[in-house]
């Protein structure tokens, strides 16, 4: 038994363009450890030798495989999937975090291998049995995977990130295998690089809903408090659709799933689709002027009050 982890790389900063292993990949390694087998990490990209070196230090990694080629400069599934497929038969499991990168890639690999896969795993019971949510987390399914090669995406918030250890796993280079039909071409990307902690990894998240009223108010009310708590800022779908907050700040079933130490929901009704993205937070705090708002069923601490006055008072006091 041997497990392949597909690493996801992030560009740390616009200026230096320094790449690093995304924290979610470290969560995938933790999931692999729960299965218990040798763990190879596959690093795919262009100019990725330094980042491959980083991966050798992650606790428990047996080997790092590197596919370094200019065709892998951008993570096109049409290029990455044939590469993963080319080495898949050496493995009992292939795991990637259920980020937009992992979700785009792994089903394509599954079809190339002609296997069914299991997405968004939140618990590993044993090598072939896992728990995953259904119906926006309203139910949990325990599934049995009897495919020869087991493909899983794991939900990063459900597994701690494996840290570095005093180790240096060996590196092996593997040959590029790509989409020779040139089915897809990267055109451009628009990534927000901000000073704020990332939504998916922040220890405190403050979210606002439609009730904030405008993009200006959204910023004006939430940012000072977020600064004081070193928090990431999230939003409901209603707030995003109204143009108050950027798309990638949406928290929930169809946005980002978060599990911070403290989640503060401000003027959020608590629709099931929103709860799906927050219910594993350590502590949930809600401010809403409607005592019957569903968010209070999930909040560890709830205050029935006007959000504008309350947020201003908290910000001033902290």
């Amino acid at each position: 038994m041997s497990i392949l982890i597909i690493a996801e790389l992030v560009i740390a900063e616009l200026v230096t363009e320094e790449k690093s292993i995304k924290a979610a990949t470290r969560s995938a390694i933790t999931a692999a450890k729960a299965i218990g087998a040798e763990i190879d990490v596959l690093v795919i990209g262009e100019d990725v030798n330094a980042v491959a070196q980083q991966a050798t230090n992650i606790q428990g990694v047996t080997r790092v495989l590197v596919a370094d080629n200019s065709v892998y400069a951008k993570p096109l599934a049409e290029n990455f999937a044939p590469l993963v497929h080319s080495i898949a038969k050496n493995y009992s499991h292939i795991i990637v975090a259920a980020t937009s990168f992992g979700k785009n890639l792994l089903p394509r690999v599954a079809a190339l291998l002609d296997v069914d896969m299991v997405s968004e795993v939140t618990r590993i019971i044993d090598a072939s049995t896992y728990v995953r949510p259904l119906y926006a987390g309203g139910l949990n399914a325990t599934v049995q995977n009897n495919e020869i090669i087991k493909l899983l995406t794991i939900r990063p918030t459900a597994f701690d990130a494996t840290q570095d250890a005093n180790q240096a796993a060996p590196i092996a280079t593997i040959a590029a295998v790509t989409d020779d039909k040139h089915l897809s071409r990267f055109v451009s990307e628009h990534i927000r690089h901000n000073e704020r902690p990332q939504l998916s990894t922040a220890r405190v998240v403050i979210s606002g809903g439609r009730s904030l009223g405008s993009a200006e108010k959204f910023q004006e009310v939430l940012t000072p408090l977020a600064n004081k708590l070193n928090a990431a800022i999230g939003a409901t779908r209603a707030a995003v659709d109204a143009g108050f907050a950027p798309n990638d700040s949406q928290v929930g079933q169809t946005g980002t799933v978060v599990a911070p130490d403290i989640y503060i929901a401000i003027g959020v009704s608590g629709a099931a689709q929103h709860i799906a993205g927050i219910k594993d937070s350590r502590m949930i705090v809600a401010i809403n002027h409607d005592p019957d708002a569903p968010i209070f069923q999930w909040a560890d601490y709830g205050l029935v009050a006007d959000l504008f006055e309350t947020t201003a008072a908290i910000t001033a006091a902290l």
Partner: peptide, 18 residues
């Protein structure tokens, strides 16, 4: 070869404080 062996409701969150 992937089958569901059980479906259950997740444990409820402990009641909060107003």
């Amino acid at each position: 070869k992937v089958t569901t062996i059980n479906v259950a409701e997740p444990a409820a969150r402990a009641p909060g404080k107003k």
